[in-house]
Design a protein around this nucleic acid. Sequence first.
DNA 1: CTCTTGACTGAGG
DNA 2: GCCTCAGCCAAGA
Length: 109
Amino acid sequence: MKTETLNFFDKVYQVARLIPYGKVTSYGAIATYLGAAKSARMVGYAMNGSGSKDVPAHRVVNRKGLLTGKHYFDGTNLMQQLLESEGVEVVENQIKNLERVFWDPSKEL
DNA sequence: CTCTTGACTGAGG
DNA sequence: GCCTCAGCCAAGA
């Protein structure tokens, strides 16, 4: 038994775990790597279940480097704290030097 | 089955 | 550079 949609979610978790320390990526980058560039929203949607997974969702942001999902962690600055703890500069929920810490799975893998 | 919402992105003004 | 609109796919009511 196999569900393609479920497989997509699973792939998202796999890629998210592959994100190196001190690096971040975008939903679209993951979606594109999975061959579903138009399903970037699904990546974020999949992250909804990341709470029960070992997925470093704090390393996944939108293409602007904005921590859109910080509200889903605890509603405070936990997500930002985690990123800063890895050496990523974050100000006002937005990542600084995004180009420097950006990690593209379709290029790195 | 239909409608709404959503951790997105690209294009246009 | 910022704001708005449309497209995209999946899940919940």
